[in-house]
Design a protein around this nucleic acid. Structure first.
Length: 879
RNA sequence: GCCCGGGUGGCGAAAUCGGUAGACGCACGAGACUCAAAAUCUCGCGCCUGAAAGGGCGUGCCGGUUCGAUUCCGGCCCCGGGCACCA
């Protein structure tokens, strides 16, 4: 008997698939198309467990649907631009291009070794000019349409390294390499007008039943539609030009205009014109504004930092009462959001309440609820309850509920020409400029005479030099005269090329369209997409991390709609069904560097000590023996160095065992905490499966021909029932993409098969049928061993190659039973079981229950008040 | 801080419409085979109590609805994800 040898089995299966090119998909009308894609991986160097999980889910779906008659396409590509390549360059002195392409080559061999059903003819890398030229092309189209535009934006600036930092490069307000306090800096950037699509991006969510509710909720909250009132506080503060600043109006937006009578101050952002004006004669204020302009641009930091303010000494006029209202500068007011100014109503806004208490500002109650007492001593949640509150101490608005108060006050403000109702969105336009080398060059030329000039379409792509090595001090492109110096496309005079590159979310916004037509042409000329895109997209199933629930998915949806509006695609939405797989977590170890940065350590590079319950109590580096800190579990990520290399597992146990374990350990949507235990178990199961197949091979090959199952021995019937029940469960679980229980269904089948009486009447036919079902159910998880057994046991002669073999059918006769077992409860507690004929009606079941020994014992003669009968399940006797 | 999830034995998990809690596996324990080990196979395995039969408790915590709650409702605690320049 041949032992289970995954290396041999897998290599043979993979070379057979490759030689016959079995995963190449073509557009064909005779089968239902199914386009399933996993979010494209970043080529960080090696596959990690998240990839293995993602692509194995995808692969199971592919193989299951293909056997069910679908024309399935599963492509692959590389999200090849981005920061890690620059970081690697700084560390190793290797150009990002070289590093990236070497990583891709290695990871591709890993993908092939995993046995995934990828159509490699469609492979793409986003750092390839043949791909990113279309980012540039579409950017110029958007510029023409006004979707792309230029304005200033705020970035993290490292004053020592003289470079812009990504948010993740800012640690505790300091640059990760220099340790210098980070400053905010305003620079010109290109933006995409996603806010123009906010309404559609929101309303379409209701027509996307294939998306998880939680993702739709997150996106809806992110878009953040709110209906409120934008109105002005008039003032006569004059600017240096002798004109009233802002036309004599300070605009604010509020969703709580019903509380307008409670305004006791206003707060503006540090960059607001009134703040800047007031600072001119006020050094203390100027210092405070300067302080506000330092520090983090990260929203979470903004939300958790101490709320601080300083009076400007300026006053505006309350539009309804005519009162003088003091204007403060608040560090929590953002210039980029709304008008950069807010009204302060301490009595009915928790943040304003805290602010007023801190600075001794007036708190004026203007809504009330019967039976609730208001006090300025402490905040109570009902103060901002707009559902129950009624206007109070608000003159003519007294007694009005929220909606009516808003209408009345908005009308009065409109009559004064000082305001109007307005719908606003939390969503901000998408800034795509990055002051970095390794990305798509923004195709703009800066000319002293002509200004910003788009690169002519005929000159695309603007090719990124592939030999730069970033050193952490600004964008290396800016130092490359051969890149920067060029002729103005308009006037021909010497000009400078834009050195900013695009956000990598641009790359990932449409790559799945390029899969459909990797060599797209229209009218014989290269094109971004062609008609084949309309064949494969919208995508039937998208699979990726919950991490991308908001940004990537929202940007891709937006991008699709812009392409639609330019007539490039027909779809409204790109992703019909979405599966957000859970993260793969692993332990995190780190050490603070002497500069204040953080160095991470891979879990296999440290030794840990545990307490009795298994909790980590300490860790030290294997390399230097010095302690490192433990930071609990977190997502596997390249920056934290806590990814697990699947290669070790493949080398030891084979790809099938690795796949089986990852699918079995948790349902696809749940998080999966990595542990080395369990892979061994998966391997053991495959050895058992293999050994079973070897032991029964001759009998199975011989047992051809039909068998009338009515003639089977009772034990064979029972075993056959187990198999078909497990098949039914597996079918259900395939459809709802709960693959962990598909695996357990396969395990149940093998258990039933091993225990079955093969020698009894019908036994041989049963083993042949059941084994064929088992192999087909497990094949999507473990295709290599599946194919090997299928061929060896002779099933290919009956059903054809396993790749396209028919999916097994549940036989209803196999499930039928003469008698069924019901749970017997007394007062809701399980007390026994009841065997009744399968066709027994409620009365018969109730009678059997009343007559049971358990009722006699536990009811002890007490009268039966009620009997609840749930057919097929249980009977509950209430006494 | 705000938004979204999750919490079930020693561990990963299952339970399809409110109806047997813990399927399937890991770890562990006992046994078989073996000179021995590995591998493999068999049995046991939520907690407490009991010789056993049985009884009690048990799905993060507190409360509610129901004949019956892991499942529905209210409140709380803890953990994870996102927060716009990681991808």
């Amino acid at each position: 008997m041949k032992p289970y040898n995954p290396a041999e089995i897998e290599a043979a299966a993979q070379s057979a698939w490759r030689d016959a090119d079995v995963y190449r998909a073509v557009e064909r009308a005779d089968r239902r198309k199914f386009f399933c894609v996993s979010m494209l991986p970043y080529p960080s160097g090696k596959l990690h467990m998240g990839h293995v999980r993602n692509y194995t889910i995808n692969d199971m779906m592919y193989r299951h649907l293909r056997m069910n008659g679908c024309n399935v396409l599963m492509p692959m590509g590389w999200d090849a631009f981005g920061l890690p390549a620059e970081n690697a360059a700084m560390k190793n002195g290797v150009p990002p291009a070289k590093w990236t392409y070497e990583n891709i080559a290695y990871m591709k061999t890993q993908c092939q070794a995993m046995g995934w059903a990828i159509d490699w003819s469609r492979e793409l890398a986003t750092c390839d000019p043949s791909y990113y030229r279309w980012n540039q092309w579409f950017f110029l189209k958007m510029l023409e349409k006004g979707i792309a535009y230029k304005k200033t934006g705020v970035v993290n600036w490292d004053p020592v390294d003289q470079t812009v930092l990504a948010n993740e490069q800012v640690i505790d307000g300091r640059g990760w390499r220099s340790g210098a306090p980070v400053e905010k800096r305003e620079i010109p950037m290109y933006y995409l007008r996603i806010t123009q699509y906010a309404e559609e991006l929101l309303s379409s969510l209701d027509r996307m039943p294939g998306w998880p509710e939680r993702v739709k909720t997150m996106q809806a909250n992110w878009i953040g539609k709110s209906v409120g009132v934008r109105f002005a506080f008039p003032h006569d503060i004059m600017g240096d030009d002798g004109q009233p600043i802002g036309g004599g109006r300070m605009y604010v937006f509020t969703t709580r205009v019903d509380t307008i009578m409670g305004v006791t101050f206003c707060a503006v952002a540090a960059e607001h014109p009134l703040a800047l004006h007031a600072a001119k004669g006020n050094p203390a204020l100027a210092a405070f504004i300067d302080e506000c302009r330092h520090g983090s641009v990260i929203e979470a930091d903004m939300a958790t930092m101490e709320k601080k303010g300083m009076p400007t000494g300026l006053f505006v006029t309350h539009p309804l009462t005519g009162d003088r209202v003091a204007v403060w500068v608040g560090n929590y007011v953002l210039i980029g959001y709304g008008d950069g100014a807010v009204m302060g109503v301490p009595a009915h806004d928790e943040r304003d309440f805290a602010f007023a208490k801190k600075y001794g500002l007036a708190i004026r109650q203007v809504t009330a609820i019967d039976g609730e007492a208001f006090s300025t001593d402490a905040w109570l949640p009902w103060y901002e309850d707009k559902a129950r509150g009624r206007c109070f101490a608000s003159g003519k608005y007294d007694g009005l509920p929220y909606a009516q108060a808003v209408d009345a006050i908005a009308a009065d403000l409109a009559a004064l020409d000082l305001g109007e109702k307005r719908t606003t969105f939390r969503l901000r336009d998408w800034g795509i400029s990055r002051q970095r080398y390794w990305g798509t060059p923004i195709p703009i030329v800066h000319c002293a005479a002509c200004g910003d000039v788009p690169v002519p379409y005929a000159d695309l792509p603007v090719v990124l030099p592939d030999d730069c090595v970033p050193d952490g001090s600004g964008n290396p492109l800016a130092k490359r005269a051969d890149f920067v110096d060029c002729a103005c496309p308009k006037c021909g005079q010497p000009a400078k090329r834009e050195t900013d590159t695009m956000d990598t979310f641009v790359d990932s916004s449409w790559y799945y369209m390029r899969y459909a037509c990797p060599d797209a042409t229209v009218d014989g000329k290269p094109a971004m997409v062609d008609a084949r895109n309309d064949f494969w997209n919208p995508m039937d199933q998208y699979i990726g991390g919950i991490t991308h629930a908001i940004l990537h998915l929202l940007y891709a949806r937006f991008w699709t709609k812009v392409m639609r509006d330019m007539g490039l695609v027909k779809m409204d939405e790109p992703f019909t069904r979405l599966l957000t797989q859970g993260m793969v977590l692993n332990h995190i170890y780190f050490r603070r560097s002497d500069k204040g940065g953080i160095d991470y350590f891979a879990p296999d590079s440290v030794e840990t000590t545990h307490d009795a319950s298994g909790k980590v109590t300490g860790a030290r580096s294997k390399a230097d023996g010095l302690p490192v800190e433990y930071d609990g579990v977190g997502t596997m990520s390249k920056s934290k160095l806590n990814g697990v290399d699947p290669q070790d597992m493949v080398d030891r146990y084979g790809a099938d065992a690795a796949r089986l374990f990852v699918m079995f350990a948790a349902p696809p949507e749940a998080t999966l905490e990595w542990s080395d235990a369990g892979v061994e178990g998966a391997y053991r199961f495959l050895k058992r499966l293999w050994a079973f197949g070897q032991a029964r091979a001759d009998a199975i090959r011989a047992a051809t021909g039909a068998f009338d199952w009515r003639d089977a021995a009772p034990a064979v019937k029972a075993a056959r029932r187990d198999i078909h029940l497990a098949l039914k469960q597996a079918n259900y679980d395939f459809d709802r993409i709960q693959y962990n229980t598909v695996v357990s269904a396969g395990m149940k089948m093998l258990n039933a098969l091993e225990a079955a009486p093969a020698g009894a009447p019908g036994g041989a036919a049963f083993v042949r049928e059941a084994t064929s079902i088992l192999i087909r159910v497990l094949y999507p998880v473990v295709p290599h061993v599946g194919c090997a057994l299928w061929d060896e046991l002779g099933y290919a002669r009956e059903f054809g190659p396993l790749l396209d073999a028919p999916w097994p059918q549940v036989d209803p006769l196999a499930l039928a039973q003469d008698e069924i077992e019901l749970m017997l409860q007394i007062n809701g507690k399980l007390r026994g079981k009841l065997i009744v004929p399968a066709g027994a009606d409620r009365d018969a079941i109730e009678a059997a229950a009343r007559a049971s020994a358990e009722v006699a014992k536990h009811a002890a003669g007490a009268p039966v008040k009620k009997v609840v009968v749930v057919p097929g399940r249980l009977v509950n006797v209430v006494v």
